[in-house]
Amino acid sequence: MISLTTAAPAVGAAFVASLVEVVEAFTIVLAAGTLRGWRGAVAGTAAGLATLALIVVALGPLLDQVPLHLLQLVIGVLLLLFGMGWLRKAVLRAAGIIALHDENAAFAAETANLSDTTTLRRSGFDWLGGVMAFKAVLLEGLEVVFIVIAVGAGRGLLVPASLGALAACVVVLAIGAIVHRPLARVPENTLKFAVGVILCAFGVFWTGEGLGIAWPGGDLMILFFGAAFLLVGLGAVAVVRQPRGVIEQ
């Protein structure tokens, strides 16, 4: 039986990290559906989800075959690469060195891209919109799958992590169905900063465990690592903050 205190960090981390990915996929599907017609967009989304399910069903059982230390090392390193990349980008964005990601702008770009290609087709089946939705769902979905595996595998927390990711999907779809617009108000950089910190903390912990390091205090070290990465990230923002000038896109 998994206790709430053990499961909560996995649920929370998977939820927050997945939220960012689902918002990105939702923005593209919304652009495809609005501009090219909903039949193609919904079919593309369904095909993307089916492909994802196939990948998970096919590869999921393989996780049990991998020795625990190797699994921890591989996932720990991938988490570190993923988390450090997010934290770096979030720091640079918060410091004003690169531009903040804007879902409204992304929606506008996808819309322009779709309308440039061929004439608009709001009814009937549209392959272009379907392919666009399929790609977005598959790619962002694979990132969600990785996040779930990363925070859940090896500790028996795949189910809580999956529930966190599922909750993110439900929240985004529910809000999206109500507002019917890109979720531009989601503070993406703040979320990415937080997720970057969490993934780095898990990454150092798991990589260490995979290398045979017994951390003092066990799982509590994840909190220490998280606090340290948070402080370092905030410090880095203050140090490199751009006073004025051109912001890179």
Partner: peptide, 8 residues
Amino acid sequence: VAVYGRRH
């Protein structure tokens, strides 16, 4: 981050 910031 520092190198990227300085280069920018």
